[in-house]
Write a protein that binds this DNA or RNA. Sequence first.
DNA 1: TCTGGGGTCCTAGGACCC
DNA 2: TCTGGGGTCCTAGGACCC
Length: 405
Amino acid sequence: MNKQILHVDVNNAFLSWTAVEMLKNGSNIDIRTEPCIIGGDEENRRGIVIAKSMKAKEYGIVTAETIYSAKNKCPWIKIYKGLEYCKYKEYSNKLYNLLNEYTDIIERFSIDECFLDMTKYLKNRTLLEIGKEINERARKELGFTVNVGVAHNKLLAKMASDFEKPDKVHTLFEDEIETKMWNLPVSELFMLGKKTVPKLNKIGINTIGDLAKYDKYEIIKKFGKHGSLIWEYANGIDNSEVKYIQELPKSIGHSTTFPEDITSIDKLEPILLTLTEHVAFKLRKYNLLANTVNLQLRTNEFKNYSHQKKLLSSTSSTQEIYKIAKEILNEMYKNGTPIRLIGIKVDNLINKEDEQISIFSCEKTNTTEKLDQTVDEIKNKYGFGAITLAGTLETSKNIKFNSAE
DNA sequence: TCTGGGGTCCTAGGACCC
DNA sequence: TCTGGGGTCCTAGGACCC
């Protein structure tokens, strides 16, 4: 039996939500109607396009390009700062609650995208009718528009919602694949990025249809597992389920770009400690323990380096993670090299209940755990910045931790 | 005033074991 | 001593997503 799937995608989410919030606060302009972008802070070297209005799109401006380049395309483009991430989360939740009236099988694919499995909840209505109703209710009740893709699997629903924008509902059923999807450039296919597209073009594959009709095993030979996936996608094949149970993260990371390059380890270390505090705090919030610590450095020349180390025993302690992170940093970093970004990531995460008590765990005292616990309680009550480890005090003031996507 | 930040998954190559 | 083959685990790096 066919699955009945909807994909709901907020149009220019960060820009739309900023517009709605501005109107709510008494602004008399709707920024959705002007050529504008939500942009990062150029002075602090975070100058990229986070979201763009439809008018900005007409100038060829794309998400994640530099603001510098966006200005070249449209010199009078307006740039807005955007809201706090938690505000965006609120709007995301409003949408989720509305969708929840239709089905409990919802996958939050990102802050602004959801998959809905409607198979059990059609109730004598067509999937398209429900899609149209959701589209209308979002506009009327929430004040922002969404695109809805209507199909029999997730891939096709996602492709459908990406057709004409904004505020549209599109179907992409099996018998429409050839007419609606195969004529599109192959770069439009989900999971086909800018590295693979030129390689496909080189062997004469320019449209999604070209890929669909190409010999599957040739594609697998060239692109491995990924090749198999994109060939199936081109043919509209996707048997994956809507994952409605929220999974625990597989890795937790935090990174920051500096306003100016840093050339000494003494300046890197306190920043690393602040980043570690964030990561460990989040670990403990999920009740997880990490087994691996990974450090990333980006040089002024945009070269990325990463090194990882396994922990002797799983931990969520700020101090223990920082100790390893500092070791890696000292092994990796050659003093004097200009560094633009530093990042820490923990993975190989396990549930705290599943902790294997190793001989190394015996060395641990309860003191650090108690300290972390106390710090977390204060952070939860008064905010993350309310308390910090002494070593980070100076740097935390100067380093901005941008939590926007 | 050029290039963010948070993720997932895959792969190639090396170490090590039998 | 001139050199196998299968397997696992680990690491660094890369591709892709929003």
